[in-house]
Simulated assay, not measured.
Amino acid sequence: MTHDPGRAGEQRRDLAAALKDLRRASGLSGERLAVRCGMSQSKVSRIETGKTLPSVVDVQQILNALGVDEELARELLALASIANAEYEDVRASVRRGLHLRQRELGALEAGAKRIRYFLPAMLSGLLQTPEYMRTAMIPPVDPANCDVSQAIALKLERQSVLYDRSKRFDFLLTESAVRWKLCDPAIMAVQLDRLVSVSRFPNVTMGILPLSTQVADAPFHTFTVYGTKLVTIELFTGRLVLRDPKDLDHYRDLFDYFSGESVFGDDARSLITQWSEDFRGCA
């Protein structure tokens, strides 16, 4: 399947029709499919009627919910890649509502058995306390016009997935990410206590990459590997989604490389506790 910008409209219509036909063939109602995908029923309807162009992540969630075979899934994902650039503008997320982004992330987390988080700059939402979360979500420019209450509630709700023992979570944090003073020292101390607590969950591994360690590669950006399906990359202006198996292999190898330079278990907790006490000393 080749990329032909002149046929973009036709390819979008083909994708919408194919998803609608598959949903009908499965016997699922639009409402039931929406529940399985973590979407609203109105969004499913807009996708099927071509009023909303689904992201590649949306299409993957729908195909997973419908149990589509791998060959057909690859074809439709290729069509989605052509019809939709795999990039989500952060401004579009704000316009749609930050709470919808939390639903999308929750659906991704629900659909993966193992998730690897590489966090060189900031803590993942699954690890954040409410106070840290609020500071992280409110933009420094025009903060008065950003209501994050619903998004924070959903982000806290997402954290319940950590208690699902059928899933495995691997968090790899640089010292810079842990010690970056996003909030007041007292809030930072509590946030680091939260890290220590989560690190003890039986289905969680947490590694720390200290600044004192000599590492022959640089932690360029945050990324998350969802099982064997996709990698997301966080940028200042949006999010990239990669699905090529070679890209997934590359990011899994990167994660393993940085893991090999990190400390885990009691050694990691000792560092985090020390940094927490440093923040308390500044409070």
Rank of each mutant, 00 (worst) to 15 (best):
residue 220 F to H: 11
residue 173 L to E: 09
residue 190 V to W: 04
residue 189 A to K: 13
residue 197 S to H: 07
residue 219 P to E: 00
residue 236 F to K: 01
residue 242 L to D: 04
residue 172 L to Y: 13
residue 221 H to I: 06
residue 222 T to E: 09
residue 212 S to A: 15
residue 177 A to D: 06
residue 241 V to H: 02
residue 174 T to E: 09
residue 235 L to C: 12
residue 234 E to N: 13
residue 196 V to K: 02
residue 163 Y to K: 01
residue 197 S to T: 14
residue 200 R to N: 06
residue 196 V to I: 11
residue 198 V to P: 04
residue 190 V to Q: 15
residue 172 L to F: 11
residue 196 V to W: 05
residue 237 T to L: 05
residue 172 L to M: 09
residue 176 S to V: 08
residue 172 L to T: 09
residue 191 Q to A: 08
residue 177 A to L: 09
residue 212 S to V: 15
residue 204 V to A: 09
residue 243 R to G: 14
residue 186 A to F: 00
residue 187 I to F: 08
residue 157 E to I: 01
residue 168 R to T: 15
residue 156 L to V: 07
residue 223 F to G: 03
residue 236 F to E: 07
residue 213 T to F: 09
residue 173 L to Q: 12
residue 224 T to E: 01
residue 206 M to G: 04
residue 196 V to S: 05
residue 201 F to L: 15
residue 230 L to T: 05
residue 216 A to M: 07
residue 230 L to Q: 11
residue 173 L to R: 06
residue 171 F to W: 02
residue 177 A to V: 02
residue 174 T to L: 05
residue 235 L to Y: 06
residue 233 I to M: 05
residue 196 V to G: 00
residue 170 D to N: 10
residue 225 V to K: 01
residue 168 R to A: 01
residue 174 T to C: 03
residue 167 K to V: 03
residue 186 A to G: 06
residue 162 L to M: 13
residue 242 L to Y: 14
residue 188 M to I: 02
residue 229 K to Y: 09
residue 228 T to L: 08
residue 210 P to Q: 14
residue 227 G to Q: 10
residue 157 E to M: 06
residue 226 Y to L: 08
residue 182 L to A: 05
residue 184 D to H: 14
residue 159 Q to L: 11
residue 185 P to L: 01
residue 227 G to F: 04
residue 208 I to V: 14
residue 162 L to H: 00
residue 188 M to C: 11
residue 182 L to R: 03
residue 207 G to P: 03
residue 210 P to Y: 10
residue 165 R to G: 12
residue 217 D to H: 06
residue 175 E to Y: 07
residue 175 E to W: 05
residue 227 G to M: 01
residue 209 L to K: 09
residue 172 L to K: 08
residue 243 R to T: 01
residue 173 L to F: 09
residue 217 D to R: 04
residue 238 G to D: 11
residue 202 P to L: 12
residue 225 V to I: 13
residue 228 T to Y: 06
residue 206 M to H: 08
residue 216 A to H: 07
residue 188 M to S: 09
residue 239 R to Y: 04
residue 187 I to K: 08
